[in-house]
Nucleic acid binder design. Structure first.
Lengths: 214, 214
DNA sequence: GAGCTTGGATAGTGGCACTTCCCAAGGAAA
DNA sequence: TTTCCTTGGGAAGTGCCACTATCCAAGCTC
């Protein structure tokens, strides 16, 4: 198919597709002659994946390129490819100053991992962006005077752990390795908006149960 | 305290504080004379809240102003104030076309709420941004050929429901109404990065348990 | 051969979160 | 008193980002 058809079938304007081609989020089409290139179903699928990451996952273009690089890199193991995708996602900025709140948050997070027995996560503490994000968020709470500590976090962490197990179970249901990897990446990126929306819906459900609509 | 001290104690540059004052995210200080204004602890607290929303919660400035308006509006009931904060948060864009995927996603979400017995959420279906986000995200999965439906979503929804119950339990532990409302708003905004970070950490923990670090 | 579409390149747009610059007024030091 | 620094406020500028508009020459279509 040509660019116009790719545009029509994906709902993405030709100008934007050209932009993605320029940004190397899509591989170039097969050049038929000087003014025509041919695209196939794989391009359409990749384009939809890119759109889903950008629009639903709110992933910036540069990060999309990075993630796709890992998706296409067959030399990496699955845990690495899954991790690479998650790690490439936008993160909260590095805490500029290591003030008392950040240090206290660091201790609480460490205590949390101890309590949960997440031995692997402890090993990843110094390098995992998720770990850093958690510390920053907990520090923000503490800075405002709320005592978020291991005790309050533990039940949340248990629930998130079960969520992660569901993620992996779902991934395992896919037959081919290529499909599993794409699903892992997608899951890492698209599951979060799903979880977020479910969380907000559940909050609405529950708070109206407690307090009514008024 | 004066602007310079407010800046020092919050770690936010004076230029940025001026910007927040101009954008009405902070109330003006008490004007001492033509070139001096006096700020107090409440300004510092509000500034930290604003920073937390913008940096950790990634909430755009315009939305922060909107949310703060609800926080300060004593005339609203708690469920409304909590909802108002969550609803003001950035959302995925409206699905442009009501194609087959969006329609199928809508049906699956409706089936999910039936299955879960979330009667209040069903009533909110036409107006809740969270509902719309969920539909958009599920549609994105379906467009890529993954069969996310009520059956796969239900266990996730159960876990998120328990999370929401934890949220409300935590809120109830705060003694004063004003504190509860601020905590509800903050929880709606800052809990999400916490949950996200916990989820990613749990994924790392679990996938390394399954597949190792290699 | 007139008039269309094609893909590629370049430059422009609009929004956002700051950040820089300038100013007049005030306080402090010489 | 004079000089110098600091203050808060406003206007304009910056840098980034995700597009989007405009050109262009080549080719296809009637």
């Amino acid at each position: 198919m040509r660019l116009a058809e790719l545009s029509e079938r994906s709902g993405v304007s030709t100008a934007t597709i050209k932009y993605y081609l320029r940004e190397r989020l899509l591989p170039p089409g097969r050049q038929v002659n000087a003014t025509t290139a041919e695209y196939d179903e794989e391009h359409l699928r990749r384009l939809r994946l890119v759109r889903a990451m950008i629009q639903v996952g709110q992933v910036p273009v540069a990060k999309v390129r990075e993630v796709l690089g890992h998706v296409d890199d067959d030399s990496l193991g699955r845990a690495i490819r899954l991790g690479a995708a998650t790690w490439a996602l936008p993160q909260v900025p590095e805490p500029v100053e290591d003030d008392e709140y950040v240090q206290a948050a660091r201790q609480e997070v460490a205590a949390l991992l101890d309590r949960l027995g997440w031995e692997n996560a402890k090993l990843l503490a110094t390098i995992s962006p998720a770990y850093r994000s958690l510390v920053v968020a907990v520090a923000a709470f503490r800075r405002l005077g709320y005592g978020w500590g291991a005790e309050q976090l533990a039940p949340y962490a248990e629930l998130m752990h079960r969520t992660a197990v569901l993620d992996l179970d779902n991934m395992e249901t896919h037959p081919s390795e290529a499909e599993r990897v794409e699903f892992a990446v997608l899951g890492a990126i698209l599951n979060e908006p799903v979880l977020q929306a479910l969380h907000r819906l559940a909050q609405e459900e529950e708070s109206t149960r407690w307090y009514g609509f008024g």
